[in-house]
Write a protein that binds this DNA or RNA. Structure first.
Lengths: 148, 148
DNA sequence: TAGTATTATATGACAGTGACATATAACTGT
DNA sequence: ACAGTTATATGTCACTGTCATATAATACTA
């Protein structure tokens, strides 16, 4: 009767808000936004939809987080925002990447390549310990492990 | 006059404590500890040294963070800690992985594989936009970009 | 013996990020 | 008039990492 109280304890302690799994997308929002803006200016809502389409961030994007991040990136000089005049149509903030933003994006690419190497180091160790049967073993009672 | 006030703004705004680069090791401490403990019980200080040796976490490990993480993992039932009696030698908390911990480790391995795929999606897009010259281009003024 | 370093664990304060909820406008469709 | 969509914004909270500091006991060394 291990953790029969509505889900494994490492899955959030109750379901939501993180838990023991860091989201797979940690730290991906900013570089993803930079990447999309490197292809052309867009406003926040459009970026949100694009992130879903491109599957750069699985599991959808938090809207509030997105706008906050854009604001901070603007404050840091990574992007430039242009507020639409209060004319017809809903107000939009169209963002354009700056040279600094492009430079950071290049560094992000290098950093992410390093990250894959770290993950590979981990996975190599893991497979060395657990063998090739990395998946859930047959002895593992197949409970509702709704990962992701 | 791009950010000539003591370093690029995306580098921490002043130097330390994160900044625009999430550390490459975000979210790696817990799975790394689980992996080491899957090979055998150890106490915190030993784990700290091992993490440095195995290079599972580049840049060293924060000691306070390590102990806090171990405590939380114990609270969650991922590891079991045994406090040494107050006899000779310094007190030690020897941790042993639990079945739940092993199960989580397996899921972590799968999640990290997914993460590499996400990173590859990003990098593919990046190279599609910027071409093969992913590195810092020749036009990029080579400022003190002390990445990492 | 006193002072310092090492081993080992622990806590406090802070910033960055993501998750969830909610608020706000303006426009669109019925 | 009412609800839905588009679009932006803020508040609160949890988790992680970073830096600083506290605490003991042991080991070394002058």
């Amino acid at each position: 009767m291990h953790h029969g109280f509505g889900g494994p304890p490492w899955h959030g302690g109750g379901g939501r808000r993180g838990g023991w799994f860091m989201p797979l997308t940690w730290g991906f929002l900013q570089p993803s936004l930079l990447l999309l803006l490197a292809e052309g200016p867009q406003h926040g809502y459009s970026l949100m939809e694009e992130l879903g389409r491109r599957k750069l961030l699985s599991g959808g994007v938090d809207v509030g987080n997105l706008y906050r991040t854009l604001h901070k990136m603007e404050m840091a000089g990574l992007v430039e925002g242009v507020r639409s005049e209060p004319g017809p149509g809903p107000k939009r903030n169209v963002y354009r990447i700056t040279p600094q933003g492009k430079e950071l994006l290049q560094h992000w690419a290098g950093a992410l390549e390093q990250r894959t190497q770290m993950i590979n180091t981990f996975l190599d160790e893991f497979h060395r310990v657990f063998g090739a049967d990395a998946g859930i073993g047959p002895d593992s009672d197949s409970e509702d492990v709704d990962l992701l």
